[in-house]
C-alpha cells in the first residue's frame, strides 16, 4: 500500500467514526423532518455552460411577431411558441427557472384562442408564462433539442 492510499484510508476511518456518532439532536431532526428516508442527490453541473446568461435564460421581454430569437415551431398551421417546463425532479432552489433539467417537458402554445382569434407570439408567450412555463430562445431550444419530451 502506498503512502497516499494509507493516508486516505485513515481519513476515511475518521469520517466513519464521526458519522457513527449520531447525536441525539440530529437524530430527532431527521425523524421529525420529512427526510426519515435515505436521500441521495447527484450534482448536475455541466449545464452551467449552456446556462451562461448569454445563451439561455428565459425571455421576459415583449416578443414581436417577426422575432427570430424566440424558439418556435411551425407544424404547418402557423408559428407556435415552444413553451418549456423545467424537469420537476430538479431542485430549482427558489431561483427563477435556470435549468430545464435532464428531462424537460415542453408543449407548443396554441396560436388561436377559444374563440378562434389568432394569438400573436407575444400573447402565446404570456399564456406560456401564465401556466408556469418558460419561453426560451431559439439557441437555447436547439441546445435542448432531442431532450425535450412531449414535443
Amino acid at each position: 500500500m502506498t503512502e497516499e492510499q494509507k493516508n486516505k484510508q485513515m481519513e476515511q476511518r475518521e469520517v466513519k467514526a464521526s458519522a457513527d456518532k449520531l447525536s441525539e439532536n440530529k437524530r430527532r431532526r431527521l425523524i421529525k423532518g420529512a427526510v426519515a428516508i435515505p436521500v441521495i442527490m447527484t450534482l448536475q453541473s455541466g449545464a452551467a455552460l449552456a446556462r451562461t446568461s448569454n445563451l439561455v435564460g428565459s425571455l421576459e421581454e415583449d416578443i414581436p411577431d417577426d422575432s427570430t430569437h424566440v424558439a418556435t415551431q411551425d407544424l404547418g398551421n402557423g408559428k407556435r411558441i415552444v413553451c418549456a417546463h423545467p424537469d420537476d425532479s430538479e431542485d430549482q432552489s427558489g431561483a427563477p427557472p435556470y435549468d430545464l433539467g435532464n428531462a424537460p417537458m415542453g408543449h407548443l402554445e396554441p396560436n388561436f384562442d377559444s374563440n378562434g382569434n389568432a394569438l400573436s407570439l407575444n400573447d402565446q408567450a404570456n399564456n406560456c408564462r401564465g401556466g408556469g412555463g418558460l419561453v426560451i430562445s431559439a439557441t437555447a431550444f436547439s441546445s435542448f433539442d432531442g431532450r425535450m419530451a412531449g414535443l
Partner: peptide, 15 residues
C-alpha cells in the same frame, strides 16, 4: 467524477 449529496441515512447505507 460525480458529486453526490447524501443525508445521514444515505451515508449509513454505504458505511
Amino acid at each position: 467524477g460525480k458529486t453526490h449529496f447524501l443525508n445521514q441515512m444515505g451515508l449509513h447505507i454505504l458505511l
